[in-house]
Simulated assay, not measured.
Amino acid sequence: MLKLDSKNGIILTGVLSVVFAIVYLALMDDYFWRYGSYDLGIHVSVLQILGSVCLVIGAIKEKYKLFVPWMITCGFFLYLMVFLGVVLMVNDNWIFVPVMVVPFTAYLSYALFSVQKAFDRMRKDEPPSYTNLDGKKDFISHI
């Protein structure tokens, strides 16, 4: 089974995040524009695509600091999905809630948790930058 906090799992998460954002953008013109989240949806989806590109590059190059943009944009995208689910339920358009909103939100929530675990693990594995300082032997006290 593929663990989402592994390198391949993080790459898969980045690719699926791009797919989710593109699906949202494709369906938004026909279904979601009348619910008031049109501009917000466009901006958050584009940010999600850019954050996903950073996530994939960070996973490939093993640069954990590139995970942060995706984690931030994923939070915004999760907010957008929850907002969309509530608005669709209020407006009696139930078909998209179990088909799109719930699976996207569930997967991205679990993926966000997994990427956070990988981020913490990679951050703890990297030695602190101050351990390589050789300048201490050349330091002369003013006293």
Rank of each mutant, 00 (worst) to 15 (best):
S114N: 06
N132Q: 13
I57C: 08
V15K: 03
F32C: 11
L2Y: 11
G58W: 00
P127T: 09
D92H: 09
C74H: 03
V44D: 06
V86W: 08
L25A: 06
T13R: 01
P127L: 13
L2Q: 08
V56A: 07
I10F: 04
K65I: 15
L88R: 08
Q116W: 01
S129W: 15
Q48R: 00
A106K: 01
L108E: 13
A26F: 13
P98Y: 03
M122Y: 09
L84S: 15
S109F: 09
V56T: 07
S6K: 06
F77E: 05
M122K: 01
I49P: 10
L88W: 09
V68F: 11
F139C: 06
R123G: 02
N93I: 04
I72D: 01
T13L: 01
E62R: 14
L16Q: 05
V46F: 14
A26S: 12
L50C: 13
D29Q: 14
K3V: 05
M1E: 15
S129F: 15
P98A: 03
A111H: 00
D92R: 03
S141P: 13
Y107M: 03
D138Q: 15
R121N: 06
N8E: 07
I57D: 02
K61V: 04
F113Q: 05
Y35V: 12
A59G: 06
V101F: 07
M100N: 00
Y110G: 06
V97F: 08
G135L: 12
F77M: 04
V15N: 04
L25F: 07
G9D: 04
D120N: 14
Q48I: 01
V115D: 05
L66E: 09
Y24A: 01
K63Y: 09
D120I: 01
L78I: 14
C54A: 15
G85I: 11
W33R: 12
V115R: 00
I72F: 04
V44R: 09
G51Y: 08
K65F: 14
L133R: 15
I143H: 10
V99S: 13
L108Q: 10
I57W: 07
F119I: 05
P128V: 11
I49Y: 05
L133S: 12
M100E: 02
L4G: 09
K117G: 03
W70T: 06
L2N: 10
A26E: 12
S37C: 11
P103E: 04
V90A: 11
M81K: 11
G75I: 11
F119M: 05
L50H: 06
V86S: 12
L40D: 00
Q48T: 11
L66K: 03
R121H: 10
L4V: 13
D39S: 13
Q48S: 10
A21K: 01
Y79H: 13
K117R: 10
K7S: 05
S52C: 04
V101M: 08
G14W: 04
